[in-house]
């Protein structure tokens, strides 16, 4: 149990997926201009990440390893994720229109989001068991949502700040991300 709490905490804060592992930078910069869209994107990522990590973990353990074809990992994972995102989109459209309305536009963007494939591969290379995989993925996803949300609030304020002309847009966003990264890396001292 202690192990799981530790794993959850380090996935959430210390090994934060955006600020210390640099996965999912594209949505971090692209979809973080408004609070509502940051929230939507974060939710969609958690949702897809959980489903795709579970499926790829099971596939890896019971198909790829069983048949000794682990070198097919990259090809299998990306195809599974791409088709899963499609399936989730169609499924949501039919079953839960309100949820589809909230997450729908972010789903196609997720296929090429390196966070989803990255976490699927990390779960394999860190040799997590199924429970650890679920905890790790959930908290990595929550960490993504958390940082996206903080960052979108900062960017909303930034719209009214007198930013030098050369820094407008991406450069100032990156400098702010650097300051956030300092704060998050200091949390490492807690454990």
């Amino acid at each position: 149990m202690d192990n799981l709490i530790m794993l959850a905490f380090s996935a959430f804060i210390i090994e934060n997926i955006i600020l210390s592992q640099f996965l999912g930078i594209c949505p971090f910069l692209g979809v973080s201009t408004k609070r509502s869209s940051a929230l939507g994107m974060g939710m969609a990522v958690i949702f897809v990440m959980l489903i795709s990590s579970s499926v790829t973990w099971l596939l890896y353990k019971y198909v790829l390893e069983a048949f000794d074809i682990t070198y097919m990992r990259t090809i299998v994972f990306i195809l599974v994720i791409a088709s899963l995102v499609q399936m989730v989109e169609t499924f949501l459209k039919k079953v839960s229109p309100p949820l589809y309305k909230a997450l729908g536009i972010y789903l196609p963007l997720i296929t090429t989001n390196c966070a989803v494939l990255g976490v699927a591969i990390l779960n394999i290379s860190k040799e997590h068991n199924f429970l650890e995989m679920l905890v790790y993925t959930t908290f990595i996803g929550l960490g993504f949502l958390f940082v996206m949300y903080i960052f979108s609030m900062l960017r909303e304020k930034l719209d009214f700040a007198p930013v030098p002309k050369a820094f407008k847009g991406a450069p100032i966003a990156l400098v702010i991300a650097a300051i956030l990264a300092i704060i998050f890396s200091r949390f490492g001292g807690i454990i």
């Binding site: 600020l19 210390s20 640099f22 820094f167 991406a170 450069p171 100032i172 966003a173 990156l174 400098v175 991300a177 650097a178 990264a181 300092i182 890396s185």
Partner: peptide, 11 residues
């Protein structure tokens, strides 16, 4: 460290 990545790229 990660901080430097964001800072250098931004600058």
């Amino acid at each position: 460290q990660p901080v430097g990545a964001f800072l250098t790229f931004g600058l």
